[in-house]
């Protein structure tokens, strides 16, 4: 199957720090790829380069056949990529409903009525039917992140990018967000998930990618990667995160 995301040899430096050091990664349509690795390994930078929240220095990125580069039509690319952020980044001055309906109106050109109908459906799907008229500050972290997921879904993107979606949550709210993401995974949408939740990675992923120092060190099906890690760095990482 053709890769919907095709990353070839991308590099990115922040000052003297080499965040990405030649990363190749192909993601097939419908695939769930979970990216793990120690902090500073380049996982977040990698997915932030795909929708150009960070500009990569070298290499090429292709999303559904469109080259992602300076001067490209980023709007066309970004509408195909839904992003869910670690810190939610909901719009605090807009109601939950408006948060979800805004981009379909402004970018896809839907009417407010159609966009709000779509938003209601999505909010119901993530279990927030009773909260649509509230403002983000009135919701718990877990609820806010589910709004964030609904907002990304409202654009009907081909790929969903999750940047540590549960890292800012209180522990008791991690489950409700992971449940939603796992349900999405079953719908056949392509997903790239940066996370520290190894249990989720094992259950939901088709493929787990381990990054360290700006490179992909090892990748494979979750069972192989977690049960028979070959690289020493991956073994150390798994020991560190799974030992307690």
């Amino acid at each position: 199957m053709a890769a919907i995301i095709d990353i070839k040899g991308i590099t990115k430096t922040f000052g003297d720090f080499r965040a990405l050091d030649g990363v190749d990664l192909q993601v097939a349509e419908g695939e769930i790829v979970v990216i793990i690795g120690p902090s500073g390994s380049g996982k977040s930078t990698l997915i932030r380069c795909i929708n150009q929240l960070e500009e990569h220095d070298g290499g090429t990125i292709t999303v559904d056949g469109h080259a992602v580069q300076k001067g490209a039509d980023l709007t066309a690319i970004r509408t195909e990529l839904g992003m869910v952020f670690q810190s939610f980044n909901l719009f605090p001055h807009l109601s939950v409903l408006r948060n979800v309906a805004l981009a379909p109106v402004r970018v896809r050109g839907l009417s407010w009525a159609d966009a709000e109908a779509r938003a209601r459906k999505l909010l119901e799907r993530v279990g927030l039917k009773d909260h649509i008229e509230k403002y983000p500050a009135q919701l718990s972290g877990g609820q806010q992140q589910r709004v964030g997921i609904a907002r990304a879904l409202a654009m009907e993107p081909k790929v969903l990018l999750f940047d540590e979606p549960t890292s800012a949550l209180d522990p008791e709210m991690v489950g409700e967000v992971l449940d939603v993401i796992q349900q999405l995974a079953k719908t056949g949408v392509t997903m790239m998930v940066v996370t520290h939740e190894m249990g989720f990675a094992r259950k939901a992923a088709n493929r787990v990618v381990f990054m360290d120092a700006g490179r992909i060190v090892e990748q494979g099906p979750p069972d192989t990667l977690f049960d028979a890690p070959r690289d020493e760095r991956l073994r150390n990482f798994l020991n560190a995160v799974l030992s307690h």
Binding site: Q52, N89, F91
Partner: peptide, 23 residues
């Protein structure tokens, strides 16, 4: 305005004008 607001607006594909006027 927090950086995350700019990023969320960009990630959704909003135009520069809409990012300013709406967000």
């Amino acid at each position: 305005v927090p950086k995350g607001q700019f990023e969320a607006a960009r990630a959704l594909g909003l135009s520069a004008y809409r990012r300013m006027s709406d967000i």
